[in-house]
């Protein structure tokens, strides 16, 4: 058997050390601008090869969707007058009380272009990017509720970090008592809410919304519904479990909330 020269073995170990060190550097500085740039290039390259080859839809499914949309339009047109007068009243009261005006948003429609290949479904790729004005930090929602925010934006593809993932620790509030807590995701369907005191009344079935003071998420977006409440913990806080409003495994299309300007 041929023996490998010692200098070749040394060289190989040096290469391995370099690869390990570089990877560790990338992991340690995961939020750095270098990683964002790298990710942006990766997304641009992916958008070149990604094409929706198998997205043919049946005529009956499209007809059903069209009928549903027409019904929704009718419903919203019927209620638009009442909503408009409520908004006007809200503006008037806000200006009387000198309350800070809310940000206004534009909605950018996008379809799913990919998902994280691992077993933790924490990243989604969507087919909207800088060319549609989408940028890092924009909130992403579906018809059911909030799902995450734009982590990196490529030219025509963006990466969404889901609230069910590592970055899902966000400020939330309860519906009735407006008690503030912190969302701690457990898996793609459920999360715990921390830091809500035992004295606060929270009911099963109550909706949970994003809090008013988040820098990423606009206030009052539906996050999920309470499925269990318990006072049995040894701390001063309740143990609250919620089910996400949107099942993260069945997302097909999303809306990016692009911040435009103050109203």
């Amino acid at each position: 058997m041929k023996t490998t020269p010692r200098y070749v073995i040394y060289r190989e170990w040096i290469f391995l050390s370099a690869a390990v060190l570089f990877s560790v550097f990338l992991i340690m500085f995961n939020d750095s601008s270098f990683n964002d740039t790298l990710s942006s290039y990766g997304l641009d390259a992916y958008s070149l090869i990604n094409y929706d080859y198998f997205s043919f839809r049946e005529k009956s499914a499209m007809q059903k969707e069209l009928a549903d949309l027409k019904t929704k339009i009718m419903y919203f047109e019927n209620n638009s007058e009442a909503v408009e007068s409520a908004i006007e009243e809200n503006y008037r009261l806000r200006s009387m009380l000198s309350i800070q005006e809310r940000d206004s948003f534009e909605f950018v429609y996008a379809r799913i272009a990919g998902i994280s290949p691992g077993s933790t479904r924490t990243i989604l790729l969507i087919n909207a990017g800088r060319e549609k004005g989408v940028g890092p930090g924009d909130a992403v929602i579906t018809e059911a509720g909030v799902i995450g925010f734009i982590e990196t934006a490529g030219e025509s593809t963006s990466r969404v970090s889901l609230i069910s993932g590592r970055t899902g620790k966000i400020a939330v509030r309860t519906e009735i008592n407006r008690a503030y807590g912190i969302l701690a995701p457990l898996n793609s369907e459920t999360a715990a809410i921390e830091e809500i005191a035992k004295g606060v009344n929270v009911n099963i079935g109550e909706n949970i919304f994003t809090a008013d003071f988040s820098e990423v998420y606009p206030p009052d977006l539906l996050v999920g519904t309470v499925i269990s409440v318990s006072d049995s913990s040894a701390t001063i806080n309740k143990k609250i479990l919620l089910s996400f409003a949107q099942n993260m495994d069945t997302i097909e299309d999303v809306f990016v909330m692009r911040r435009t300007k103050k109203e």
Partner: peptide
């Protein structure tokens, strides 16, 4: 990792 990884480099 750069396309769809949660932590770049892992």
């Amino acid at each position: 990792d750069s396309i769809a990884g949660d932590v770049i480099g892992i």
